[in-house]
């Protein structure tokens, strides 16, 4: 383990709780619709005139809606390790919020280890490292 500090790769999108992290969203005080990333201006439900929102922690477990991987190195602003290591991506359905959230799957898990409907939980893992820090992002991890 390096002794470099761990810093959120994207500030304010998730709690930095190492054990039980959550994505941070908002919910509309009028109709209850959830938003991720956070929305705090005008509700997008066409039947709602809500302008007041409450910051909420989204469910940290869900079921896989679908999954894939990235065999080619993506363009910037993705910061790839050298040599490039393909990673897996999952779209995860959150039951309470009735929404699907994308994210990488933890390192070492390939598409052949996943199925639609599998249970996953949110964890924090390194997105990339630079000289100053480990940049941390949310990822989905299969629940054993």
């Amino acid at each position: 383990m390096s002794d470099k500090p761990t810093i959120a790769a994207i500030e304010g999108w998730y709690t930095m709780d190492a054990d039980k992290p959550h994505l941070i969203g908002t919910s509309c005080n009028s109709c209850g619709t959830y938003y991720f990333p956070k929305l705090s201006t005008f509700c997008k439900n066409p039947s709602c005139e809500g302008e007041e929102f409450t910051e909420v922690q989204l469910s940290r477990t869900g079921k896989i809606w679908s999954y894939t991987d990235s065999q080619y190195k993506p363009p910037e602003p993705f910061i790839a390790a050298d040599p490039y290591v393909p990673y897996t991506v999952a779209a995860v359905q959150l039951e309470k919020e009735k929404m699907i959230v994308l994210g990488q799957v933890v390192a070492g898990v390939g598409v052949d280890q996943l199925k639609v409907g599998d249970d996953v939980e949110l964890v924090l893992e390194t997105l990339y490292e630079n000289d100053e820090a480990n940049k941390i992002i949310w990822k989905w991890k299969p629940v054993a």
Binding site: A9, S66, P75
Partner: peptide
């Protein structure tokens, strides 16, 4: 958000592949 999704490695083919894989599993 478009910058963020590229930053975390969500490219255009990702979306098409998610739809395709869901067809296979479902």
């Amino acid at each position: 958000p478009d910058w963020v999704r590229f930053h975390i490695g969500i490219t255009n083919p990702t979306y098409f592949a998610l739809y395709a894989r869901r067809r296979m599993d479902v």
